[in-house]
Design a protein around this nucleic acid. Sequence first.
DNA 1: AAACAAGTCAACCGCTCGTGA
DNA 2: ATCACGAGCGGTTGACTTGTT
Length: 320
Amino acid sequence: MGQHSCCNQQKVKRGLWSPEEDEKLIRFITTHGYGCWSEVPEKAGLQRCGKSCRLRWINYLRPDIRRGKFTHDEEKLIINLHSVVGNKWAHIASHLPGRTDNEIKNYWNSWIKKKINRKPSSTSMMTRLTTTSTSIDQPHSDHGYNPTNLSFLNQDLCINNIKQPNQETVFSSPLSSLFMLDTSGSVLEGHNGDCITQTEYFNDSMWQMNKYQIPELPSQVLNFASNNSIYSGYLPPLMENLDGMVQGQNCDLNNGEGRECLIQKQHDFNEWVEDQTNQQCPSYLFWDDEHQEVQLGGEEIVVHSASNIGPTLSTYPTSL
DNA sequence: AAACAAGTCAACCGCTCGTGA
DNA sequence: ATCACGAGCGGTTGACTTGTT
């Protein structure tokens, strides 16, 4: 399975493309178009399989390919899109004209590798909850954002300037299940001017709303958070599912007022996302769903629990 | 200058999905 | 309904480049 008939041929060449091969492919595609890729190699006089030709064209030879470093805006867009769709590179690429899924994927992977390799700091620990069983590269959900099966959404919030433009709006959303814990207590003390403090975050109304989506959040996790001066932040809801999210809450999308409410939320969230994605966040905390334990910067913190923390959520990169 | 490590990126592999017979 | 096939996607590999010691 997976192996195309055209790729079974003994004579097909593999490896890097020579300039001559590129030229042949470009000449053929520009004059004939590609139609059926499996027929391209033969017609173009190439000893490659159609799949290889397709890949070469799409990822490298296409005239509208944009090469070079990603711009700041592109990076931000990738981050935001990835937070929404996960590793759907083709989907992300479709929002970045001239960029290929392969390029974005490579970029992301090398970027993430850096993050993973970065040693956690003892004085400044950001927290990320996720299931290690599915790794940080998993999308938030296989089925999109369904508030009922989301429990945690990992996102690194920066220690400095954790400024939430509109807490009321934010926490009134069912997607307030998007949730994280932050262990940066010691740092916070010095920088909490703009931050939500632990107390503020865990006040009743906010916490009730989180509970709405995280009914089984293990108390051990909360205790851990409390004992370690953890406060939590949260990730803004996802724009593309906002309709579903706000409907039935305090926005009725069937009327103009509800629509206005939605637009306002989107505006707030967009601002917030933009703000957060500009920040630097140093390390992560992992929730290991399989072993039911929290891992902080590689250090295991046992949380005895039979929680029902839901499916994995994805990464939210920390800095640009 | 040489050796090694780390990073980058093109290409391949294996899989799923859509479509048509 | 089933099968075969091609297209497309995401994960992974490995060659090459760059940085560091």
